[in-house]
Design a binder for these strands. Structure first.
Length: 955
RNA sequence: GGGCCGGUAGUCUAGCGGUGAUGAUGCCGCGCUUACAACGCGGAGAUCGGCGGUUCGAAUCCGUCCCGGCCCA
């Protein structure tokens, strides 16, 4: 870097030092960005700002310090994150005057750190949020975190276990204190990661699902549903997690196929007659809770058994054989032992047979055998352990008839992975059936749109047979259930604030319900509780319903569907009008990224390595965001390479834009003398913007990113810049140099704006290094396609030019011409239009194809001897060879001829078909005929060349 | 058991009735030409999962089978 650069840098460093005395204070949040690991570094007052080319007070910047040759993201990303914080970029207006765009960040769980999936979703959202903000729409992206009750408690429990401390030995208050400190730590790390990613959230509206106001919203929701009879308490079969000693909801159970031993156990006849009835079971340890053996009423094998009495093995308790249609006669021998407290089907059958006694639980909340129905020697044994002991005992008693391996679905707790114990217990439930129709209708009517739309099917299917939701949890960490009991009269009261005395008998004190609410019972209020509900706040008025929910489809039922049900119930409106589901990331071997497999990189490591912008870009391109996609080092390098390309492009532009160049307030006005490349690049930019906007409107994120990628790299860098170098160097005159600078600057500056929402840091840096107006690119106006003129002819003409260039370059390569050589070339254009393009663009073709001359061949004129021919749609091209025709050339021609001949044959066949001629639309017929003519023509010309070369002495 | 999604060059992917089937990456050849070797230029590489049907015409629509992934029970 030259002296000029050093001076400029020093100047900015002074500015930065000045700013240090006014540290940024975010409402309620720690201001300084932390090191990437989220741990504050001791001994430093605050971040050192190294502003190299920061925002300028005067607005219009002339030329900034030259960019360093290498793109090194770390320092510049930090610098711009701080600049955005200073500008309060994410802060949404309190009283917007026009329709808003709002998004609620799916609150990350305080259990863990931000993973790549979060970065993916946040990149998509930030792209839309930043674009919306630049377009002048009042924009809110509201951040927050989720207390994630059960999963946080599990994480803390595991953590404490390593220190030899057991959560179960602690009081509720102690547990909450431990979890709270865990939460503090993770909250800091999550917030840091969100800022390291460059996500433009409104920190002033930061929320937490356990903050006091949120607690009130949660209680309000509960009480309202309770009063409407939609929340009830009852004894039901629930999924019991014996490891965590709590009920969990159906959604928190994962089913997987596992092989078990299916035991055929003999229940001897009570009257002492030989034999008995053979019952198949995978859970012999539950036999102590048996109250009957059931068979299907139509099962001839057991017709004689119904009404008789058998003895339960090992305990000799007598139970009846009953007939019930609920028994599946194909399972085992068709006889089922009935254990009403430990199986839902058994319970249902039990209920249909009055007269049967209700046994005690023979398995306790921790999964151990219990009760005096269980022989003493088995009591206290874990259910899994007891299974083998009981099996052995059955064998010893001669009652184990035989056994077979049996593949069946086993439910495991999502959190603890313990096998779920179906358990009859008293819990709180939400009736879902009355809530579901509004949400289903919303999607059906298009009031809420799902992207990609295929998820609608899955959504409908689930909603249509939604089950009641068990919302009570027997853990410490969570919102307490706002229900109170009177010890005197047993009165039960649900109330937002704890009542002081019983509303029936006036007794006090009251006993609060010991359970807490399922985390999702607070999460399902997120889009409106964060905006102030149940109060009618201005935020709720201005920013609700939100515009978008961006999330993974794995929580469609847990969260998305429930938010819709809650929102329609409590507010009568949708919580959001669009849902975008991103895919699941896989590694390069196609495995799902997961902590468990250890193949899930820490996003912060990737940021440190390649920068947040590269990571953002890699997450949306080239693998489609809305499908499960591959993410690996190659993808990330690809993104980094692209950003380096952009970096270098701007470096090039910068070196050609002298001090004093005006910022591009509008597109340069072209004249009749303007060269094709200037007309073309503006038109191309315009069409890129049109397509880009269209893609974003359709949530085609990857296509949108691809459009900018190819425009910048292939159109702007590879073509426009290469063609314009002569003009920029001043070798085509000052007026053209001036115009070309203006076109280059306009195109580049506007393209940086387009790219900014996707890769905000590097674009901000680059934007500040070229002439621009304004303090921050993040606050610049979103470009309109109409700023540049339409020019379809220029678009076509440039394609013709580049087709010629590619043809000639190909001839050079095939014939192994030295890179430095400038051989003459000839062309016989295929038509007048083409001829005109070649005539006016001769200089461009000469320069880009590196040919010394381009002459036109009149019809009938034979091609120059010893030249290499190539026949394309745009004409015949000939390149002079130093040694005449070459074998390589002949081979290439023959190949081309064969390819075209095959095509021609296929085309002619189609034309010969009477059905095609009669039924194909006229324009298709005409196009096909033209194609056949063109192909025949080209085949003939190639044949001529081959024949000419084969003739001896033709040189 | 029920359902959904996908199967297109080595890999990933676009197209979803008329194309010479996108594009990226990887691969091969040439080249450090002062924005860029994290690059440029050129090239090779695909019977569009199999079979059958509809149609003048199928990667595209229908049926069926096979393979992979996911969800629900």
């Amino acid at each position: 870097m030259g002296d000029h650069g050093r001076v400029a840098r020093d100047r900015h460093r002074r500015t930065a030092d000045h700013r240090l005395r006014h540290p940024l204070v975010l409402r309620g949040l720690p201001a300084p960005l932390l090191p990437l690991d989220g741990r504050p570094r001791p001994g430093r007052a605050g971040p050192v700002l190294l502003l190299r080319a920061g925002p300028t007070r005067e607005g219009a910047r002339l030329t900034a310090a030259p960019l360093p040759p290498r793109f090194e993201p770390a320092a510049l990303e930090r610098r711009w994150q701080e600049a955005w914080d200073r500008a309060d970029l994410g802060r949404a207006p309190d009283r917007p005057s026009s329709a808003s765009f709002s998004v609620a960040l799916p609150p990350p769980n305080v259990t863990g750190d931000l993973h790549l999936g979060h970065f993916l979703g946040n990149t998509v959202t930030d792209l839309l949020v930043r674009r919306s903000r630049m377009a002048g729409t009042p924009t809110l992206w509201l951040p927050g975190i989720d207390h994630a009750g059960l999963s946080t408690q599990v994480a803390v429990r595991a953590h404490l276990a390593k220190e030899g401390v057991h959560l179960e030995d602690m009081t509720r208050e102690q547990v909450i204190a431990r979890v709270e400190s865990w939460k503090q730590d993770h909250e800091r790390r999550i917030l840091n990661a969100l800022r390291v990613g460059g996500f433009s959230l409104d920190w002033s509206r930061y929320r937490y699902t356990m903050d006091p106001a949120y607690g009130r919203a949660t209680r309000r929701a509960f009480v309202q549903l309770y009063n409407a009879g939609l929340v009830y308490r009852g004894e039901r079969f629930v999924n019991w997690d014996p490891a965590l000693r709590t009920a969990v909801s159906d959604l928190e159970v994962e089913h997987s196929e596992e092989t078990a031993r299916l035991l055929y156990v003999t229940y001897p006849w009570a009257d002492g007659s030989p034999g008995g009835i053979v019952v198949a079971t995978v859970r012999p340890e539950t036999i102590f809770g048996d109250v009957a053996v059931a068979v299907h009423p139509d099962d001839p094998r057991h017709a004689g058994a119904v009404g008789r009495t058998v003895r339960v093995p090992l305990v000799d308790r007598e139970v009846p054989v009953i007939a019930d249609p609920g028994v599946d006669p194909t399972f085992g021998n068709g006889a089922l032992k009935i254990t009403p407290r430990h199986d839902l089907l058994d319970f249902e059958i039990y209920q249909r047979h009055p007269g049967l006694p209700m046994p005690p639980d023979v398995i306790d909340p921790e999964g151990r055998l219990t009760s005096d129905w269980v022989p003493v020697r088995f009591r206290g044994q874990d259910r899994e352990e007891a299974r083998s002991w009981v099996t052995e005992a059955l064998q010893g008693a001669g009652l184990l008839d035989h056994e077979t391996p049996y593949l069946h679905a086993v439910g495991r707790s999502e959190r603890s992975h313990a096998v779920i114990e179906p358990r009859l217990s008293t819990q709180w439930f939400v009736r879902m059936a009355p809530l579901a129709p509004a949400a289903v209708e919303a999607v059906r009517r298009g009031e809420v749109r799902l992207y990609p739309a295929r998820w609608e099917l899955t959504f409908f299917r689930w909603m249509e047979n939604v089950q009641d939701w068990c919302i009570s949890r027997q853990v410490a960490w969570g919102h307490p259930i706002p229900v109170y009991y009177c010890p005197a009269c047993q009165q039960m009261m649900a109330a937002e604030e704890p009542p002081t005395r019983c509303d029936r008998c006036q007794q006090s004190p009251l006993t609060p319900d010991p359970d807490v609410l399922d985390t999702w019972f607070s999460s399902w209020l997120w889009p409106f509780a964060t905006l102030g509900w149940p109060d009618e706040t201005p935020d709720l008025a201005h920013y609700f319903p939100t515009s978008l929910l961006e999330t993974g489809r794995d929580i469609m039922f847990f969260w998305v569907a429930r938010m819709m049900m809650a929102s329609y119930y409590f507010l009568g409106r949708p919580p959001f009008t669009a849902v975008f589901f991103h895919g699941i990331l896989r590694d390069e071997e196609g495995r799902k990224l997961s902590k468990h497999l250890g193949n899930s990189p820490d996003p912060l490591d990737l940021v440190r390595d390649r920068g947040a912008d590269a990571l953002r870009f890699a997450l949306v391109f080239p693998n489609p965001v809305d499908q499960d996609g591959v993410f690996g080092p190659a993808t990330l390098d690809n993104a980094r390479n692209f950003l380096t390309k952009v970096w270098n492009l701007v470096r090039f532009a910068q070196s050609h834009l002298p001090d004093g160049t005006d910022p591009p307030d509008r597109a340069p006005v072209l004249t009749d003398d303007s060269p094709l490349e200037n007309r073309w690049i503006l038109a191309k930019w315009r069409s890129t913007v049109e397509q880009f906007d269209q893609a974003l409107r359709a949530f085609e994120i990857t296509r949108a990113a691809g459009l900018l990628h190819s425009f910048l790299w292939y159109d702007l860098a590879d073509r426009y810049v290469e063609v314009s170098k002569e003009a920029l160097a001043g070798r085509r005159g000052e007026p053209l140099r001036h115009e070309t600078r203006a076109v280059l600057l306009f195109t580049l500056e506007r393209t940086l704006r387009l790219l900014h929402p996707l890769v905000p840091h590097v674009t901000e840096e680059l934007w500040h290094s070229i002439p621009h107006r304004g303090d921050l690119l993040a606050l610049a106006r979103w470009p309109a396609a109409e700023e540049a003129p339409e020019d379809p002819e220029a678009l076509v003409a440039m394609e013709v030019v580049y087709s010629a260039i590619r043809t000639l370059r190909n001839l050079r390569t095939e014939n192994r011409l030295a890179p430095s050589s400038l051989p003459p070339a000839w062309v016989r254009p295929s038509g007048d239009d083409t001829a005109a393009v070649f005539r006016t663009q001769r200089a461009v073709i000469l320069q880009q194809a590196r040919v010394g001359a381009l002459e036109f061949l009149a019809t009938g004129t034979p091609p120059p001897a010893g030249s290499a021919p190539s026949v394309t749609v745009h004409g015949e091209f000939y390149l002079a060879l130093p040694t005449g025709g070459s074998p390589a050339e002949r081979l290439a021609l023959e190949r081309e001829r064969d390819k075209l001949a095959t095509l021609l044959q296929k085309t002619e066949q189609r034309l010969a078909d009477a059905g095609f001629r009669d039924r194909a639309p006229p324009e298709v017929l005409k196009a096909t005929q033209e194609k056949a003519r063109d192909l025949a023509d080209r085949v003939r010309r190639i044949e001529e060349h081959l024949a000419a070369e084969a003739t001896p002495g033709s040189e």
